[in-house]
Amino acid sequence: MAIDYDGLLASGSMMGSGGMIVMDEDDCMVSVAKFYLDFTVEESCGKCTPCRIGNKRLYEMLDKITLGKAEEGDLTRLRNLANVIKDTALCGLGQTSPNPVLSTLDNFPEEYEAHVKESKCPAGQCRALMQYVISPKLCTGCTLCARVCPVDAISGDKKLPHFIDTSVCIKCGACMEKCKFGAISIQ
């Protein structure tokens, strides 16, 4: 891809101030799109409908997706709304604000689908979709994780594999950080 005005435009991006941000598979594209929308929602002046209400709704739909609450059809609606905002907004802000949504939808459709259809965040960034699990094979039953858990979500006898109650777990990650055996992972 040519890093020039036309090349970037063709791939659904734009030159902006010339900065470039490199992200890898550990960054969730839905969350990134949501981050950008959060910015436009805040920067919207409120004069035109598509930007004032449309961007807010776009943000809310992305939020719903990252929470694993999206339904069948939401992605179609998301794309339609993004296109209409681009097509009808009064100024450059609203006319470009849906770009991160549309380009991530185009280039990373599988990430969106994973969130919607499987309630999974492939990058492991969407907290609501994460689950911390202890591998019974690797766990030595040292009890350290149970002791650091701030909400007592981890139980198990000494020297036996431990278990995380996902209904109690607040996904703070303290257990994973402390585990010396790499027995705790995110699913």
């Binding site: 409908t49 598509p50 209400i53 449309g54 709704r57 339609n80 709304l81 209409v84 097509d87 009808t88």
Partner: peptide, 16 residues
Amino acid sequence: RVINARRTVVELILSD
């Protein structure tokens, strides 16, 4: 394209 945009815009207004 126009009708879809117009309806979407009015739906947005109605949504608030």
